[in-house]
Design a protein around this nucleic acid. Structure first.
Length: 186
DNA sequence: ATTTTCAAT
């Protein structure tokens, strides 16, 4: 992805009305050593209401990609994704179902910001269910932004440049997410 | 202490 797309969408101070999701896959061997599978690396974005056809959240395109790979059920894989907004309730549900049906796949989600539109009256229970199904969900820290930059951005050899307030915002969101994930456990 | 959110008033 180009530099501007990254900055516009992943800057944790912003509020873009679209979502990008970068994904990468690693195969894990018996010693838990990870081998990157670069052929499955990429990113998707949602389809908005301004575009033709039915709107679609980024996560559903992501799920479509994963299914199309038909990853070997006798192996174990780790999917890592960097997403600019945390999944909404419905997407979280779909990811949860997917993980329950695909025990050979682990999911790590690094999110830039917390999406708090309450689209089902259920608050953030979708994220809790997703975590309960084995996903790891965390807020992107400076290190994660840098990894995303290095891995997915056409950075032209430029190093990642943190923006003003990145750390403070990240810490704050992290606390919020912890509260969300903790609150619904009982 | 806050609140703009995969839009739409």
């Amino acid at each position: 992805m180009d530099e501007n797309t990254f900055t516009e969408n992943f800057n944790n101070q912003g509020w873009p009305s679209k979502t990008f999701l970068c994904y990468m896959v690693e195969r894990l061997d018996d010693e838990n050593t990870a081998t990157p599978l670069d052929e499955y690396k990429g990113f998707v974005r949602n389809k908005g209401r301004d575009q033709p056809g039915e709107p679609c959240h980024a996560e559903l395109y992501f799920l479509g990609q994963i299914r199309s790979w038909n990853l070997d059920r006798n192996q174990h894989y780790r999917l890592t994704c960097f997403i600019s907004w945390t999944p909404c309730y419905n997407c979280a549900q779909k990811l949860t179902t997917f993980l329950k049906e695909n025990h050979h796949i682990s999911l790590h989600i690094f999110a830039s910001r917390i999406y708090t539109v309450d689209d089902s009256g259920s608050r953030q229970s979708g994220l809790c269910a997703l975590q309960a199904a084995g996903a790891r969900i965390t807020i992107m820290t400076s290190k994660d932004f840098e990894r995303c930059w290095v891995t997915f951005v056409d950075h032209k050899e430029k190093p990642f440049q943190p923006w003003e307030g990145l750390e403070v915002k990240s810490k704050k969101l992290c606390e919020e997410l912890q509260a969300i994930l903790r609150a619904q456990q009982n």
